[in-house]
Design a protein around this nucleic acid. Sequence first.
RNA 1: GCAUCGAUGGUCUAGUGGCAUGACUUAGGCCUUCCAAGCCUAUAGCCCGGGUUCAAUUCCCGGUCGAUGCACCA
Length: 574
Amino acid sequence: MSDIYENIMELARRRGFIWPASECYGSVAGFIDYGPLGSMMKRRIEDTWREFYVVREGYYEIECPTIGQEDIFIASGHLKGFSDKMCQCPHCSEYLRADHIAEGNGVKGASSLDCEGLGQALCTLPCPACGEVLGDVQVYTFNLMFQTTIGPGSQRKGYLRPETAQGMFTDFQRLLRFYRDTLPFGAVQIGKSYRNEISPRQGMIRLREFTQAEAEIFVHPAEKKHPNFSRYAGYRMPLLGIEQQQGETAALEITMREAVDSGLVANEYVAYYLALTHDLLVTVGVNPEKLRFRQHLPDELAHYAEDCWDAEIFSERFGWVETVGIADRTDYDLKAHAAQSGERFTVFIPYETPRKERRVRVIANMGALGPRFRGKAKEVADALAEAVPGRDGVTIKVGGEDVFISPDLYQVREEEVDIPGEEITPHVIEPSYGIDRMIYAVLEHNYSEETVNEEERRVLRLPPGVSPIQVAVFPLMNRDGLPEIASEITARLKAHRIMAEYDDSGAIGRRYRRQDEIGTPFALTVDYETPDSGTVTLRDRDSMQQVRVKVESLPNLLRSLLNGSSSFASLKSV
RNA sequence: GCAUCGAUGGUCUAGUGGCAUGACUUAGGCCUUCCAAGCCUAUAGCCCGGGUUCAAUUCCCGGUCGAUGCACCA
C-alpha cells in the first residue's frame, strides 16, 4: 500500500526529519529520533508554542525532572489509575482487561479488587473472546509508567513521568510566590513524557517517549472570566459538543462568546484556550479544514473535570487524532497533592474589606491554672480556648481524661474580630499538547505531490515559521566568481540569524527541488547580473515565481517574509 | 500481548541453496546562463541470533521492526 503516510515517512527518513531510534541495534517500537531537519522543525514549532503561551499569555516556562519519586504519582493517581489489571485467556491467548470481564458479569466493585480477588472472581467466568471458562487465570497489573530506582542499591522507587503537568503542581507554592500571591497565574512546561504503551505502533502517533507542551493555569474558582477574553470572543470555529455528537449533527460553527453564553463551553477560560489552540495549530501549518474540537462525552469526562475538549486533527492514515486536550480540572490536582504531602496548596484571598465576625473567646486565668495544673497548665489552657463553657464551668479533655474547670479559672469574652480573607484552592485550566502528533499532522497536511514538466515534484508547503531551512542560496553557475558571492550572501544572512543554506551541487532545477522537498520557503540565486546590479533572484517555493531584489535589502525582506508581515505575492522586481 | 503478512545499498526495487540486479539519491570530475538535462568515476546492501547444509540472503526456529485486526491514550 503506497499511501500518503508511507510517502511522508519515506521522505522524512531520507531527508533527516525522523528516524527509527538506535537503528544499529534494531529499533524498539515507540521510540523515534528526530534528525537534523526534524529537530529544527520541532524546535520551531515549540518556539511558536512559547510565543503563544509564554510571551503572549505571560505563563513562564519551568523545567522539572522527568523522573519523579513515588509520592508524586500516588497523589496524581497515576500509580493506581494508570495501571490496568490484565489477564490472558489460557485457551485462546486473548489479552483481556480482568476488571472489565468481572464487571461485565455482574461482579460489583470489580475495579477495586486486587489481583488475587479478581483471579478468584474470574475463575468461573467465560472468556469474552472464545467463550471458554477462564478457570485458573493469572491476573497481573500492567502499569503504563516506566519504573526505576533512585540511588545505588536503593529501595526508593522512581517513575518516569507520564505527563509534564505534575511538575507545575508540585512547584505550586514556589510558583505562587513567584507570581506574588496573586491569581490568576500559569506555568508551562515543554518536555519529554513516558508511557509504556502496550501496543505503540502507528509510527509517531503513539510513542513510548514523547514530547508534551502543557500549561497549567491557576484561577479563582469563582472567577472564570478570562481577562483577555475579548481577543478571542469573536473567534469562530467548529465545535462538536456532546449534543452534536449524540445527535450526530454537524459541528456548531459559532463564536467563543456564543459558545460560553449558550453554556456549550463551561467558561471563558476553556473557550479562550480552545480558540488559542485553533489559532496556534493553524499557525504552525495544520489545515483548518482537518481540525475539529470535540467535547468529552459524559462517560469520557473525568469525574472531577468540569469540561474537557480535544483538538482532533484528521489524518489520511489515522483518522481523527487527539492532539490537544483542554480541560477544566477544578481543584482536583492541588487537593490531591495537599492531602498527600500535608503542605499548603491554597491561595490567601483577602476580602475587599475585612469581614467582621463576632466570636466568643475563652481566656484562661494562667495565674490560677499554673499552680493548680503545673506541667499540664498549657494543655489545659489550649483545651479551654477550644471549649464552649456552660454557666457553671466546663469539662474538657486533657491527656485523655475529663477535667472539670470551674468558672473562676477563666474569663469568657465576646469580641468582634476582623477576618481579612480566606484560603482557597485554585481551579486548574489545563491545555495539553502532543508535540509529536502536531509535527506529524503538519507534515501530512503540507505534503504535496504534483507534476511539473512531466516530472514529479514533491513539496512540503510548511509555513515559513516552521521550515527548518529558511532560505537557500545558489550560484547559478559554478564559476566566474558566482560561488564566492553566494557564499558571502549566505554568511551575511546567517549573521542576521536567518537559517540560510548554500548549495552549488548539480543543476539549478535540481537544487530548487531539493529545497522544495524539505519545505524551504525561499531560494536566492546569484546570476550573471548580480556582480553588476547587486541584485539576485528570489524564488517562492509555493508559486515557483521569481522576483529580482537588491542584495542589501535581503535581511529585512526575508525577515518580514518569514514572520508573515509581508507576502511574496506583493513583491515587485527592482 | 495474540493472530496474519512482510523485511535486499541512503531510497525504491529484481532475484537466487554456490560472483547479488537495476533505477533514483549522494560524492568527485566534465558539461551547463533559472526549475530533478547529459557524460565519466566512486561510495554503499541481503534486519538480528540460532539451526539444517560442504555451502544460507534464500530452507527451519526464535527475536526485532513494519503493516492489518482485538483492549488503553497526548
